[in-house]
Structure formats: structure tokens, C-alpha cells
Design a protein around this nucleic acid. Sequence first.
DNA 1: ATAACTGCAAAACATTTGCATACAG
DNA 2: CTGTATGCAAATGTTTTGCAGTTAT
Lengths: 170, 170
Amino acid sequence: MKFGCKRKTLFPNKVINLSATQRKEIHKRFKDFLKSQGLRETRERKVVLDAIYETHEHIDADELHLHLRQQGHAISRATVYNTLNLLLRCELVVRHQFGNSQAKYEPSFLFGQHDHLICLDCKKVMEFCDPRIQSIQEMVADAYSFEIKRHALNLYGHCQRPECAGRAST
Amino acid sequence: MKFGCKRKTLFPNKVINLSATQRKEIHKRFKDFLKSQGLRETRERKVVLDAIYETHEHIDADELHLHLRQQGHAISRATVYNTLNLLLRCELVVRHQFGNSQAKYEPSFLFGQHDHLICLDCKKVMEFCDPRIQSIQEMVADAYSFEIKRHALNLYGHCQRPECAGRAST
DNA sequence: ATAACTGCAAAACATTTGCATACAG
DNA sequence: CTGTATGCAAATGTTTTGCAGTTAT
């Protein structure tokens, strides 16, 4: 039922800079969620939300914590983790596990659905988009009587970028 | 270049019981790998390999360790982890991260390539197979000049099995 | 014989939890 | 005011590492 990637191109239609209206929409969604759950709207929670939406990379909780500390926010790691879980629950961010044990987070609201290409050497993560995944999803849902909420397709390999010098295995 | 899922059916062609010949082939592959790397062939390593190929489920390192202890093998957790990493390197097993932080392992040699359907409620993992993933992979590899080695497509949702009583979110 | 492997325990790493204090509603 | 959130540190859970003793080659 969710909107999938309908375009012919492989490249995802990711919004890079949010307009003031979009920013407000995001804030509203979080505020409404917190109110609906009887949770408080704190400075720290807003700061985490904004930081995630400013970062156009796949970031982990610790990087996010460090980033916020460097910006002068006296926020603890525990609060970062706590807030990330709230943002997951209201679907403002998504969590990825790219093979390593550390989870990566990414804003999801207003951004197109997409999948990932991960370089095994330099660990760079790229994004792509293919409408066929949507039909695979529907077909599998039907065959298995499964109500599918989301998917993750990760392609692992070796990128050809000259900057990629990494070599992992023998 | 790797053989993908070419069949029309969604259900993967997983071999359930290995023949003596297949078992020998697997052992040989491990033995050759160990020799090529100057590593030793120990009782513990063989035991882990056999246990993984006996288990037709997605198993984590700790479950595997427990299983082996219950069978009377005095093997340590460290050795289980060490051996799993060796088996990954010689491509006899694959590792999955199904959302939770715990990695799951599965035999991969002689078994068909397939993807996974994960129930968010009861955590049951099912397998499916779709040839279109192969073409998506090829198309993306081409568009991004990426040499793709493997992929993981996970579909998350709610299964309709009567035994599935779990309810996670509000 | 000897270099690598094992088991154990400790370390490392990511994430969660408990508790006293701070602050939103 | 009141109860929830925060920061800190300690706890948890998973995987890795160091070391002394064991074993494959």
C-alpha cells in the first residue's frame, strides 16, 4: 500500500535541501507523535531530529552523538539512542544493518524509497531505485499470505572509484 | 557471474538432506581452503562445519555453541566464532543480519541462492526466490560501474500463521 | 619440534537500563 | 507541582582478543 519507486531511472529522487514548509511538516509529525504517546517534547529530541535531517549520509548513533557534542550540545549517548528509537517508531527515520554490527540511520519522511549498494572495500554506501522490487514484494506477499511493511535490498561488491583503495580479503 | 535463481516458482530449491558425495565435496572445499591458507584442520572446525550443514534453520553463534555442547562436544564459544569466520571466508556459509543485532548463519554451498521474509511479530524467517533480483543486480552493477558479489533482500512484515501470536508495536 | 589452535576469561563494542537530578506540561 | 526525560555510569548482549596450555603437521 505504501508508495514505492515508480520511476524508470535507477537513481533515487532524494530531496537534498528541505524547504521551510517541509521542515515544519517534519516537526509537526514528531510533535503529534509525542503528544499521542503522552511523551514530552524536549530540546534534545528536537536537536536529534534536526541533526538527522541535516545529515544526508548514513550515520550511526555514535557519529550522531559526536556530531551533536561538537556543535556544543550537551547531549548524552543514551538520549541519542532513546530519541532514535522514538523517531523509528513514528517512521521519521529508518535503520539499516549493512553487514557490520553497527546500525546506520537515515531520514525517511519526504524522501523516496530506495535501496543500497555497499562497497566491501571502502564501505561507501550508494543508493538506487528499482520499481521491480515493488512487484516482487507484492508477489511474495501474495504467495506467502504475508503483509509486507518494508524491505531492504543491499547489494555488496567492489566500487570502481579511484579513491577506493581498500582491499579487504586476500 | 554467479548462478542466480532462474526458476519461475518463488520457492527456493533448497537441498535438505545431503548425499555422501555432497558431504565429501563440502569437506574437501573446507580442507582445501585451510591448506591454501596454511591453517590446520582440527576436530572442532570439522564439527562446526557439520553442525551448520545439519541445521536447516537460520542459527546464531550462541545457539550453535549450545547445540554442540548438548551433543557432548567440549567446544568454546570463541572457537565457534572463529570457525564461522573461516567458513564465511571460504564461502561455505553466509551471515545474515535480520534487523536485530544478532547475526544468523546459514550454509550456502550447494544450496540455491534465495532471499528472506521475516515476521516482525514471531521473528520467523521464510525463504523465497525471484529471478528478477538477478536482473536488478546486473542493471545496477552496470549503471554504477560496480562489481556485485552478493545481495541480501529482506522483506519485513506480518505473517498470517495461526501460531503467530506476537504483537510488537502499539 | 614447533607454530598454530583451543578454552577460558577478559576486553571490546554497541546498545539499554537504573537512578538521582532537571525540567516540560 | 508532578511525573517524565536527561546524564551518567553501570549493565547487558554479542563478538573478539590475549594468554597458557594443547595439538596437528
